[in-house]
Design a binder for these strands. Structure first.
Length: 178
DNA sequence: CGCCAGATTGACT
DNA sequence: GTCAATCTGGCGG
């Protein structure tokens, strides 16, 4: 199956669904004309005001970004690391999916962790509020790969919801454990 | 304004 | 095991 670019429709569903569906998809990051591809192996879903771990409970730029259109890239700086999220669901829903780990396909790099993959793919604040459905700096492809999905509680959250919102690919060595 | 916490990581005791 | 690095936003003075 030929890989095709994922459009905005894909991100228009709720965060939990998108987080699960993103597993096995491919992130493409273009730097100086070169395309770096990596398969998504671990994600987490974040909701709006009812999710105490979400940055949407705050009232600043991060919340405003989560309220933007599906497919908007949210780059969140924490503890000297940049974390990437993709905004999901309808405009104004404040939902997002965190990308936690990737498996490099055509390059060498450590992408085993949310702060590491941004470093490897040079994802920084300049991609903040850009869209993953428009532009040629970064996008997501689907090549039809279907893999076993596992679920668990989110990592590093103090006040987690009583719901398993972390998704990862079974038996994949690039998944960040703990 | 200062201080604290957090969806992290790496270096060091 | 502990600690600190950088950014954003909440809260107290």
């Amino acid at each position: 199956m030929k890989a095709r670019k994922i459009d905005k429709e894909f991100f228009l569903r709720d965060a939990e669904f998108v987080a699960r569906e993103l597993l096995g998809k491919i992130i493409v990051r273009k730097i100086n004309g070169k395309e770096f591809r990596a398969r998504i192996v671990e994600t987490e879903a974040y909701f709006g005001s009812e999710d105490p771990a979400s940055r949407a409970v705050q009232n600043g730029d991060l919340r405003r970004t989560m309220l933007m259109d599906a497919g908007t890239i949210l780059v969140y700086g924490i503890h000297n690391n940049w974390l990437v999220n993709f905004v999901t669901n309808k405009t104004g829903m404040a939902e997002a999916v965190l990308i936690r780990a990737l498996e490099p396909m055509n390059f060498e790099g450590n992408t085993k962790g949310p702060g590491l993959l941004t470093k490897s793919l040079k994802i920084k604040k300049d991609l903040h509020k850009k869209s993953v459905c428009e532009g040629d700096k970064i996008w997501v492809e689907d090549d039809g790969m279907n893999l076993d999905v596992c679920e668990d509680f989110r990592i590093g959250i103090r006040n987690d919801l009583p719901k398993k919102l972390r998704f990862y690919i079974k038996d994949n060595g690039w998944v960040s454990r703990r």
